[in-house]
Design a protein around this nucleic acid. Sequence first.
DNA 1: CTCTCCATGTAAATGGTTACATGATTCA
DNA 2: TGAATCATGTAACCATTTACATGGAGAG
Lengths: 191, 191
Amino acid sequence: MSLRHAILAALLDGEASGYHLAKNFDVSVASYWFATPQQLYAELTRLETAGLITGREVVQQRRPNKRMFTITEAGMSALHDFVASASRPTFIRDELLVQVYACDAGDAAKLAGHLQERAAQAIAKAELIEKLLAKLRGERSEDRYLAEAVRVGPYLTGLRGSTFERENAAWCHRVASVLRLRANLAAETVD
Amino acid sequence: MSLRHAILAALLDGEASGYHLAKNFDVSVASYWFATPQQLYAELTRLETAGLITGREVVQQRRPNKRMFTITEAGMSALHDFVASASRPTFIRDELLVQVYACDAGDAAKLAGHLQERAAQAIAKAELIEKLLAKLRGERSEDRYLAEAVRVGPYLTGLRGSTFERENAAWCHRVASVLRLRANLAAETVD
DNA sequence: CTCTCCATGTAAATGGTTACATGATTCA
DNA sequence: TGAATCATGTAACCATTTACATGGAGAG
């Protein structure tokens, strides 16, 4: 029920098309909310029907036409209500963690390889987010920015995303090294 | 498709009933995988049909009868394959983060309150996990435990869960204090 | 000439949540 | 007397993923 709010929140940055949202969702909103393009297109149609956003057709010449959406006053009011509403703790669902939980019953060496890949992806994502934060901040210090800026939501969620990815990478490295150490110890025992 | 693997992984700790899994999922498997009881009961039935687990009826006198499940060899082999398989990066879906993203368009004071509650919950969960880790480790240091223990999966995932919750709490506090600071500054400006 | 990007959508299938249902036992 | 715990399940409903479909433009 809350993809709609994620979309409304994303539209605070201004008019956007479904395609644009799909491309940028993981940079802006989605260190913490993910959606497939199909989900977005479907939900945009529903939001328009509900009057929370308005779309306008933009005719393009060398590209397919697109529909640009803007949040309406009704949408702003719905978002306002949402911000103050209660929300339950998140539930993480991460296949990799299930794999690590079961690592003693599987091929730990291969898993260690996947962990290294994940660590690299996590660092790449963290760097992307951190660049975005630096751009938002500009010359100001973080504290000044957060005190003075007109809008701070995207910066605050970016902070969470960046530490999350850093912690992810650190954990992946740690687990991979433990698994490799244990593989070596096991090999010595066999000798 | 991977709730089945989470269940198989949970059954590495030994025989369990659906009810038991539902109660303990968030302590063992589920800093990183969540499922409702209904999901578990349904999936257990499917796993049994598929021959990956076996159930036996336990007749009780002062309580309803229950079915205890054990992982089979076919189940172990499926889990083995799963551990080495590729998995995509997680996608977080957290309503609270969407709320913070949109905080500039809503009631920041109320949101700050919710953030404090969340921080408290996160710390409670971290402490729970950390107790579990200490219990697993016993007298040994972490490094020795991870090198020597027969099974390390649960400890390794517990590490991730505990830092995740700590980081969560820290972030909630940070955001709440930023929002309060801004509320005060806004009030002064009005004076 | 193939691949990727732009841009949108439909349809089918799977996965997940919520509500409802049962019924004895134990604790306050 | 009322609520919580034990223990399992069905059914209806939503949310999400995956596959399929289209078609021109520009890069290699």
